[in-house]
Each structure stands twice: as C-alpha cells, then as structure tokens.
Amino acid sequence: MIFKVYFQESKKEVPVRENTKTIYMEADSERDVRTKLADKPYNIEFVMPVAGALLEYEKQNEDFKVLEI
C-alpha cells in the first residue's frame, strides 16, 4: 500500500505549516512507515493511506515518487 507522509525536516524546530513536506512510501501499515523513517531526523505530522482515485490523482503530480526503504 502507498502512504503519503507529511513531515518537517527537523525534530528540533517548531512545526510551521508552510515548511511541511511530503513523501510517498510503500509499506504494510502506518506503523511500518513510522518504523522505516525512525532513523531519519523527520518530525512526522501525519501518515495517510493513498489508494483508488486519490492515488491516481496523486500520480499526476510531477513530484510523485515512491520512496523505497
């Protein structure tokens, strides 16, 4: 399953909505996503499963790339 992860690049800074970034990951569950990203310095805000029509919409974005860890 594909997940969209909203995050800030630093755990040490206060989250600012304008600095939120996204990545897409393939994983079995939200817990699996968080486990795979645990060694990164990311402050994960939200993890959302993406499937069906939403996934097709997201694929149209030029920045759509699935991160494989």
Results as ranks from 00 to 15, higher is better:
Met1His: 05
Met1Leu: 01
Phe3Val: 04
Phe3Cys: 07
Phe3Leu: 03
Lys4Gln: 11
Val5Arg: 03
Val5Asn: 01
Tyr6Glu: 10
Phe7Met: 00
Phe7Arg: 01
Phe7Ile: 00
Gln8Ile: 10
Glu9Leu: 10
Glu13Met: 12
Val14Met: 13
Pro15Glu: 14
Val16Ser: 13
Arg17Asn: 13
Glu18Asp: 14
Asn19Gln: 12
Asn19Arg: 12
Thr20Gly: 04
Lys21Cys: 06
Thr22Phe: 01
Thr22Met: 04
Ile23Leu: 05
Met25Arg: 00
Met25Gly: 00
Met25Val: 02
Glu26Trp: 00
Asp28Thr: 04
Ser29Tyr: 00
Glu30His: 00
Glu30Ile: 02
Glu30Arg: 02
Glu30Phe: 00
Arg31Thr: 07
Arg31Met: 06
Arg31Lys: 09
Asp32Cys: 01
Arg34Ala: 06
Arg34Thr: 09
Thr35Tyr: 12
Leu37Trp: 09
Leu37Lys: 11
Leu37Gln: 09
Ala38Cys: 08
Asp39Pro: 01
Asp39Cys: 01
Lys40Met: 14
Pro41Val: 03
Pro41Asn: 13
Pro41Thr: 03
Tyr42Asp: 07
Asn43His: 15
Val47Tyr: 10
Met48Phe: 07
Pro49Asn: 11
Pro49Trp: 03
Pro49Val: 09
Pro49Cys: 13
Pro49Lys: 06
Val50Asp: 02
Ala51Asp: 11
Ala53Glu: 11
Leu54Ser: 13
Glu56Ala: 15
Tyr57Cys: 08
Glu58Ala: 12
Gln60Phe: 02
Gln60Thr: 12
Asn61Glu: 11
Asn61Lys: 14
Asn61Trp: 01
Asn61Ile: 04
Asp63Lys: 12
Lys65Asn: 15
Lys65Gly: 11
Val66Tyr: 11
Leu67His: 09
Leu67Cys: 09
Glu68Met: 06
Glu68Ala: 04
Ile69Trp: 10
